[in-house]
Nucleic acid binder design. Structure first.
Lengths: 152, 152
DNA sequence: GCTTGCCTTCGAGCGCGCTCGAAGTCCTAC
DNA sequence: GTAGGACTTCGAGCGCGCTCGAAGGCAAGC
C-alpha cells in the first residue's frame, strides 16, 4: 500500500476492511477542502512540493492560482494528482502519463486511444506482477534453504 | 516472466507446467557448457555484454579469463549472474546486491546478515506486489468505467 | 516597519543503472 | 601476411525522475 493510500485511508471515515479502488471519484467524497495549498497537497499525497511543481511544469496537471500567484489546488487538480500518483506507483513512465493527459485535453474522440493506453499499461502491470512473483519465489527459496552459498 | 526465464526455459528439457524457482542449483543442471564467452552469457541472460562487464567492474561477480585475457564464465559465474539478474528483476538496488556479494565473500559467519538482507528484500517485494495490485485495481476500474474523463 | 516563513520561478545538479565510443589486442580464415 | 571480427580497458555520456538552491514576492504578526 502506497504512502498516498495510507494518507488517504486516514481521511476515510470507516477504516475497516479493504479499500475500494482509490479513484478520483472517491477523492471527491473525502474530507478534502475545496482548495488546498501546495503544502497540503504534498502532505496528502506524500509527494514533495518540488515534485508537484515539477508535475505542473511538464504539463501533467494545471493548477489554478490565487491573487498572489500561489497555487490553489481545487478538487479537480487534487484528483488529477492522485490519479497520476497511482499511475506512477505502478511505474507508468511519465512520458506515457503525459501522453494520456494530452489525449484527455484533445477531447472525447481520443477515448479509444486512451483506453488502449490504459490497457497496455494494465498488461505491463500484470507482467510486472508475474516477474515479481517469480523473483519472490527465488528469494523465498534462498531464505528457506539458507546455508547454501550457491551462486551468490 | 522475465527475459532471463524465457531464455532459460528454452534450455529445460520439459517445458510443460510451472517452472520451479529459478535458482543457481537449477542452472547447474541445465545444458550449459562448462565455460561460456561473454557473448553467450549475454544471449543466455538477455543482458548486454556491456552490462555484464559493468557488473564485473563494480564487483558483483568475478569472471575467470582465458590465456588471451578474455572472459570465460564458468558455471559458478553464470550462476551468480543469473541470481543477480533475478534480484534486479525484482528491483533490488545494485548497492544491496553488492552488499550481499560482499557478505558472501567475507565467509559463513555473515549468514545471519545475508538472511536479514534477503528477508528485507522479500518484504520490499511483497509491498511492491501490494502496490501493484492496488494500481491494477485503479486502472481496471478506469478501463471498465471508461467514458468518465475523471481527474485525468 | 520589520521579521518570519511559505510561496514563486528558473535552471542546474544528482543518483541510478546502464550504454556507448575510442583505441587497442588477439585469434581465425583466407 | 592481412582482413575481419570479437574481445579488451577506460572513461564519458545518457535517460529518467526527481531534487535542490538561488533570488525574490507577498502576507501575517509583533
Amino acid at each position: 500500500m502506497s504512502v498516498t493510500t495510507d494518507r488517504l485511508r486516514g481521511l476515510i471515515e470507516t477504516t475497516e476492511g479493504e479499500l475500494p479502488p482509490l479513484t478520483v471519484e472517491l477523492v471527491r467524497d473525502l474530507e478534502i477542502p475545496d482548495h488546498m495549498t501546495i503544502a497540503e497537497v504534498a502532505e496528502l499525497t506524500g509527494l514533495s512540493a518540488h515534485t508537484l511543481r515539477y508535475y505542473e511544469r511538464i504539463g501533467l496537471v494545471e493548477v489554478p492560482r490565487d491573487a498572489a500567484g500561489r497555487r490553489l489546488y481545487d478538487r479537480d487538480a487534487v484528483g488529477r494528482v492522485v490519479f497520476i500518483t497511482r499511475l506512477r506507483d505502478s511505474d507508468m513512465p511519465i512520458a506515457a502519463i503525459a501522453r494520456y493527459v494530452e489525449l484527455v485535453k484533445r477531447g472525447r474522440d481520443t477515448e479509444p486511444e486512451r483506453l488502449a493506453l490504459l490497457e497496455a499499461h494494465r498488461d505491463d502491470i500484470l507482467n510486472r506482477l508475474h516477474d515479481l512473483q517469480a523473483a519472490l519465489a527465488v528469494v523465498d527459496y534462498k531464505i528457506t534453504t539458507y546455508g547454501g552459498a550457491c551462486g551468490s
